[in-house]
Amino acid sequence: MARTISYREAVNEALRQEMERDPSVIVMGEDNAGGAGSPGEDDAWGGVLGVTKGLYEQFPGRVLDTPISESAFVGAAVGAATRGLRPVAELMFIDFMGVCFDQIFNQAAKFRYMFGGKAVTPVVVRTMYGAGLNAAAQHSQCLYPVFTHIPGLKVVLPSSPYEAKGLLIQAIRDNDPVIFCEHKALYDMTGEVPEDSYTIPFGEANVVRDGDDVTIVALGRMVSVAEEAAAELARQGVQAEIIDPRTTSPLDSDTILESVENTGRLVVVDEATPRCSMATDISALVAQEAFGALRAPIEMVTAPHTPVPFAQTLEQLYIPDAQKVANAVKKTMDWKK
């Protein structure tokens, strides 16, 4: 039975249901319980934004607080995954990949191939990304393209509570290393989520909205921004099709290409910086595979190529909004050779 819960609750429920189903699932991270070794409460935080709250009490010994020591515990999660556990490690902010990246991209990502197909490393790294909370340059980045670049990793960007639960359960059951990217500004977003466990397969885009005039491929939080733009565009008589790839690795290129074959126009909306990004990647895909269908140059709506600024005025300018998306769509609609 579906009921309305938040993105945060959806992530928590996915963890809870998988921990109930499979005793090999463990959770670890900085303050994932919170309060280890302190005189007060043991489950003080449940993660810095409360996502893992309550799991510590329900699953004794399976929710591990860690020192602030990302290389060690992310590496430990990877190592434990080679020995029969299904660890879900929380890398608090995706920006902290800088202090543990080796364990992810040189170790976990490589084992399967480098060891001749004999390794199975079912580790999930949950991590928060994105701007919007005035968290500034080192706590706001959209670094998923960096992970997407690495063969051997699967990269997931849930855009809603429904996606968050089903994709996280899939991530935990998946036998490959998965980077599960949660947008920090989506935690309070609510939506209908089935109570039962379910999985959403990786590499299957969601067509969020049908339309024949233009294809908007939007990632993560940008899906709702694109929906806002599409609603306004519809009032002006432009029907946008919105595609949420849900996973950037694997990427459902078929759904994107089929849509562009129909609409002839593409706008990619990505909160990440533009160089070597999903925006450029998807644009290149379409330019290569659907060139003949294009009726206008591809538009990209992204952050500028700068670090994420702190001041509210600047951060608002930094993040793509519905107006920018609508403008880009109009540009493709108005384009003449």
């Binding site: 290389s71 590496g75 430990a76 999660a77 990877v78 190592g79 434990a80 029969g84 080796d102 170790q107």
Partner: peptide
């Protein structure tokens, strides 16, 4: 695995030791 990254192995071993302990 042998490891091409100097210092790559010790964190992994925390994990295998953790698995042994949990199991």
């Amino acid at each position: 695995g042998a490891n091409g990254i100097v210092g790559g192995g010790p964190p992994l071993i925390c994990g295998t030791a953790l698995a042994a302990k949990q199991q």
